[in-house]
Each structure stands twice: as C-alpha cells, then as structure tokens.
Design a binder for these strands. Sequence first.
RNA 1: GUGGGUGUAGCUCAACUGGUCAGAGUGCCGGGUUGUGGCCCCGGAGGCUGUGGGUUCAAGUCCCAUCACUCACCCCA
Length: 419
Amino acid sequence: MEIITAVKGFKDILAPETDTWRHIETTALDVFRTFGFSEIRVPLVEKTELFRRGIGESTDIVEKEMYTFIDRGDESLTLRPEATASVIRAYLEHGLPTAESITKLFTIGPMFRRERPQKGRYRQFHQIDVEVLGPDAPQIDAELILMLMHFLGRLGCEQLSLQINSLGCAQCRPVFREAVVRYLSAGKDGLCPDCLRRLDTNPLRVFDCKVEQCGEVIANAPLLLGFLCPPCADHFTKLQACLNLFSVPFRVNPKMVRGLDYYTRTAFEVTTQSSGAQNAILGGGRYDHLVRDLGGPDVSGIGFAIGIERLAALMPEGKTYGAPGPRLFIAALGDRAVESGFTLCNRLRIQGIPVEIDYAGRSLKSQMKRADKMQSSFALIVGDREIEENSALLRNMHTGTQDKVALDDVDAIITILAR
RNA sequence: GUGGGUGUAGCUCAACUGGUCAGAGUGCCGGGUUGUGGCCCCGGAGGCUGUGGGUUCAAGUCCCAUCACUCACCCCA
C-alpha cells in the first residue's frame, strides 16, 4: 500500500529545525515584550470578505492565491494569506480602539497562499507579524524598526540590509503616480511585457522589475521622494533622524514599492544576499486607511511580517538549539533490572531529570553504545548482580569512572547527577 | 499559470558510449571470550533503479507519457 504524502507546498518541520524555530519564537517573545507588545492569537480562517477588503481586490494574493472554500453551502471562507487583516479585525471586534490609545500586538503562525513553491516560498509558510495601531508619530515607525533590527541582531543574523522608503499619502501619491505613468508611457518601447501590464495594473511596481532594459528606462524616472507633501516629507525625515540616533544602518531606496496596496508613508524591507531569489525576509510599512477600510475609526497603523522559513535559513551555521542529551541513561540487564529501571527512570523524570532507558533487553555493550550516541552524561548499569544487593553502577560517561550506588536511594543519585 | 533541472538503499551519492550494474559511504541492527560507550575490524537487514508504456537479443542507462521533487519567472514573507 502506498503511503500518503504531504500536500504540495506544505512541509513537515522536524528537529533540529524545530529547535531553531523555537529559539526564534522565544527570542521574539522576549524582545517584543520588552518593547511593550502583547501576543494575540487569531483564527486561521476568516470570512473571505475580510481579505478582499483588507488586502485589495486587484492584488495577486486576492486574485489568484487564496485558499477559499464555501462553508455550509453559503458562506465563503478563506485560509488567511497574511495576518494584518485578521489582527485589525480582532482589534476592532474587541473594541480596542476606544479601550486604549495605542495597541501593540504580535502574532506568530502559518499563512497560506497557493503559489508555485520554490526556495523560500511555500504554500503554508509562517510569519511573525507585528502591528502598532493608533498614533502615527514617526517615533513609532522608528522604534518598530529599531525593535526588529535588535531582534535580528539577537538572533545573530548578519549580512542583512534594511531599506526604507516613503510611499506618500493620499494627497501626494496620486500626483506622483500620474507623473510616473506619463513618464513610462513615453518610454513604453523599452519595457518588458510584464511591465507593460504593470503600467495598467500597478505602475509603481515597474520600479522593482529585474529586467535590465526596464532598469534603464526607470533610471531617470521621477522619484516619489520629490513629490512628497510637506507632512509626509517631515515624517520621513524624522524617521531617519530617529534611526540615526540609534545608529541603525539603513539605505533609503526610493524605488522600493511594497506589494500590498494599503501601505502609505513609511515602507521598509530587510533583504539578504544569500537565500536564492526570495531574498526578502521581512517587509512592512504604515497603513493610514486600512483600519477605516475595515470599518473602524480613522486611526493609523504600522506593522511588519517576518518570514520564519526565510529567517531560519539565515541563522548562524553550526549553532544548535536542541536539548542536550539525557543526564542519565539506564542500562538494564535482565527482566528484574528492567522493572526497577522503569521505576527509577520515571521517578527521576518526575523530579525533572532527563533520563532515557532501553527496554528492549539488548546486550550491555549495545546499551552503552546507545548511551554514548545520545550523549548521556551518565550511565546507570543495573544487572542481576546489582539487583541482588539493591545497588547499581553509576558511570560518568566523560571520565569513565563509575561508583556503586544504592538503587533505591534516588536522592543520592540525583546528587551525583547534579554535579 | 509559464519555463529549466532531477528522480538508484532511511540519508548523501556511484554504475564509461545500452551488455554480471544493482554498488559505496553514512545511519540502523548484531558480533569482535564471561556484564561496559567513543577509535578500529567483521557480519546483517534494507532498493521490482518514481510509475506506466515503447525501442532493442538486452534498459538504471534511449524515446514518450505521467507523477513527484526542485530551481527560476509572475508575485511575495
């Protein structure tokens, strides 16, 4: 009979990778708490309408990447392709806008997009999502970025590049957009087919086209920074000043445009050289109208999402985050020894000591091999001889020395193990 | 959705132009004098060479199809 395999683009994560993930998550929890964030857990499934309104009807995500299904024959539900919309939905549903003036939330979990899988890109992938709802002071943007760079530093990730840009607001962006369309339409002949399409759908995206020819056309295109209205320009300047205050290295990339429609003003991205084509490990930005568009009050928000798969791939080589081997391995010879080994083993575990034992009745030699392979600190050898006198041999696996101990004197054993 | 690459033991990979080619390393299990790990030595289990067709006297090796995995485009974390 054939085994059933996992669905395309859906991955199992086993140790030692799970250990790395756990380390990433606990570090995030620690850092984010320090910066005043609390965790929120939101459902994996939402009404489809939430994402249509939140992410934007014309985005690729909504157009062709969502896992959408009809529940009970009438309601359209969707596996979340991102977390921001869900977090804001919860924020509104629980009355948080009026309960507090600023809300700082993070959530960690799987997202689902039905794209063709490739390196660093899966149909179920995982994100650490962080959102600040309420005020729109540039200091908020700055400390959010400061926090995430600090987080990445804590993990020991190197060779990362932070890029920031301002996408303007409802006042200044349309003017810029028009200028870009005008400029690109004039230089149409030099654009690739994809960009010609973008010209209609999302002209700003022409900026990050990888085709060389398009790059030449874009080289002299008008830049958004030149079109920023005074409030937006001021916001962006202050953000940079704050980042400089903490010596956060960043590069202003006026050609960086984020994929999602809802971003306004600050947008940022952290990329890496390694990791293949999917080099963005994190992206985020401010959104001035998303909360309102989802039926809430007119408050601003800013957030970012880190791709855990992509981040995990950048973790320092050679470091392991798994549990060390057991403190003790019990090598039991014979039925009676196995019986008392079972008792002792689980007594010690309940005392909080990691202990392993082999019930298979193998030779002492193979049990010792196993103890060694598991990197156990000690081995306890119990055979008929020892059982007769209620004793056991406690062997230090590093030094090779061993002492006779009383088999039922759990305290004495613990004392030696603790050394 | 489009294009490229790859499919041989649990894992990493061999097998020249089709002809003992079904292998190695590693891992797993066991053994190397009585009940003692790491190094070393020996042995064992484990694969209808992804699947289905075709060409041929003969196919892991060539052709077609299919599935899976993978990389890239689109897009994005």
